[in-house]
Amino acid sequence: MGLVRFALLLTGDQASAEDVVQDVFLGLYRSWDRIRLDGNELAYLRASIMNRSRSVHRARFRARLHQPTAAPPVWSAEAAAIDGEDRRELLAAVAALPRHQREVLVLKYFLDLPEAEIAQTMRISRGTVSSRTARALTALARQLKEQR
């Protein structure tokens, strides 16, 4: 469930999140003989889920013309599943961030990963993790002030 929750925060809806995780496990199963994880299974899964979630977003854009798009994000006013206006407001602001900033926040504040692991998962330097986090928090604070 932890991985599905992680995917949920990246994709915005449960159905996509479950599909993403299922797909990642299926991919891992199929390539089990070809990859060496050396004890980094969880890191591999996290990175795979993140990549797969990106594909979901790209597919959603392409789907504008030919396929139904996903459900509204779980924290949207339309979904109204999250108690508390403050939380919905904050999550909506997170959703509006550029994806790389959103991802770094989810890795940091949901998975509680240290900077080094975030860097490994996102394949970026630790310095970039720091700067992205700072920019994301600044953008969030600005958005929240605008909404008030």
Partner: peptide, 23 residues
């Protein structure tokens, strides 16, 4: 530096609540 005090905790709470709700 966090530009808004308490934002860290609010994010943790919001992420947890969002995923708990769906679960």
């Amino acid at each position: 530096m966090n530009p808004e005090p308490g934002l860290d905790d609010r994010l943790r709470d919001a992420f947890q609540t969002a995923t708990d709700t769906v679960a």
